[in-house]
């Protein structure tokens, strides 16, 4: 019996140690490409950890956003940085791994980057600014917060009053049957609205920094194009399913949005373009749709004597569905646009 109880704990211990090891390797690897790949692996293992912790929603989001989108963004950025570096005709400081060029193959050489200061451009190497003694000192100093935080977590061992019961008591009135979705869209909907605004803000920031579209203008691989044509409609279907299922099971707008975004990226990579006449205000409208629908819905109810973002009884369900659909579209479009980089 005891061994049966110990087995899950042993698995969890291995998972936790894997997490720490991957994080350490990702942060200390001298090869940037390897670091990014290890970081993506970290995200995937983290996804497993979330499943172990009964947080399936987070697991989905972690794998789609934390590992998937972040990983894709990192790889794309790395490819652009390194192709710019190759252009300055310096000896590359990064060790060329077998797989490294894969990321380069994804991106065209960044023609816009200026010829640059070169002597210093390659100085990075394994890239620490600090002498080793200082680093050791810092590591020793960091043992204090490590021990302190560990001690505090140990203190938190005793179960504290959470909000589980309160959420369960009000779930009926929230318009959805899945507690996490209820918290996200109804109980703490104000946070989620602003979070959508943060995502949009990131795109505004990215577009304010660069003007040229960067990615996906290279020659296409026929196999990739074929797969994209096969997968894109499927992914749209999966996104729709995730929105729908979010009402009563793990899933929802953010997970669905990232699937939609991935579909957009695939289509882009296989040569599809947003038609030029749609890149102006129609595209911008899609990008802001989620925030607009959410915000307007929240304000309109005030005219009916409800509080801000407080849906009248019986109206919560359709309202939340409309918000989720609009948010999914916008999240998908924003994520794809973030990956592509330059504004149209």
């Amino acid at each position: 019996m005891a061994s049966l109880n110990l087995l899950p704990l042993a698995i969890d211990l291995v998972l936790a140690l894997t997490l720490l090891w991957l994080a350490w390797r990702a942060l200390s690897s001298p090869d940037l490409f390897r670091a990014v790949v290890l970081f993506i692996a970290l995200g995937l293992v983290l996804g497993l950890v979330w499943v172990r912790l009964d947080a399936v929603d987070i697991a989905l989001a972690e794998i789609a956003l934390g590992a998937g989108v972040t990983g894709a963004l990192l790889l794309a950025a790395l490819a652009k940085l390194q192709s710019a570096e190759a252009e300055t005709a310096d000896a590359s400081t990064e060790q060329e791994g077998d797989w490294q060029g894969c990321s380069q193959a994804l991106a065209e050489p960044d023609a816009k980057s200026k010829p640059t200061l070169t002597a210093s451009a390659t100085m990075d190497a394994t890239g620490s600014a600090m002498p080793i003694a200082l680093r050791i000192l810092l590591a020793l100093l960091l043992l204090v917060p490590l021990a302190g935080l560990g001690w505090v977590v140990w203190q938190l061992w005793l179960p504290a009053p959470g909000l589980t019961d309160l959420v369960a008591a009000r779930l009926e009135a929230s318009g959805v049957a899945h507690p996490v979705t209820a918290v996200l869209l109804n109980f703490r909907g104000y946070d989620t609205l602003l979070e959508l605004a943060v995502l949009l803000l990131a795109l505004l920031g990215v577009w304010s920094l660069s003007s040229a579209p960067h990615l996906g203008d290279e020659e296409q691989e026929p196999a990739l194009a074929a797969l994209s044509r096969l997968l894109a409609p499927l992914m749209i279907l999966v996104a729709a399913y995730l929105v729908w299922v979010g009402a009563h099971a793990p899933g929802g707008a953010f997970q669905a949005g990232s699937v939609l975004g991935a579909a957009g990226v695939l289509l882009r990579l296989s040569g599809w373009r947003v038609p030029p006449r749609a890149t102006g205000w129609p595209l911008r409208l899609v990008l802001v749709l989620g925030v607009v629908v959410f915000a307007c819905m929240g304000l309109v109810v005030m005219a009916f004597g409800q509080p801000l973002l407080g849906y009248p009884p019986g109206w919560a369900k359709p309202a939340l569905l409309a918000i989720e659909l609009a948010a999914t579209l916008s999240i998908g479009a924003i994520l794809a646009a973030l990956f592509i980089g330059g504004r149209p």
């Binding site: 894969c102 074929a226 997968l231």
Partner: peptide, 16 residues
Amino acid sequence: LLLAASATAGQLVASW
């Protein structure tokens, strides 16, 4: 799905 994806990925890597 995985069959299709890994075939494509394999083809991409090999052609690269």
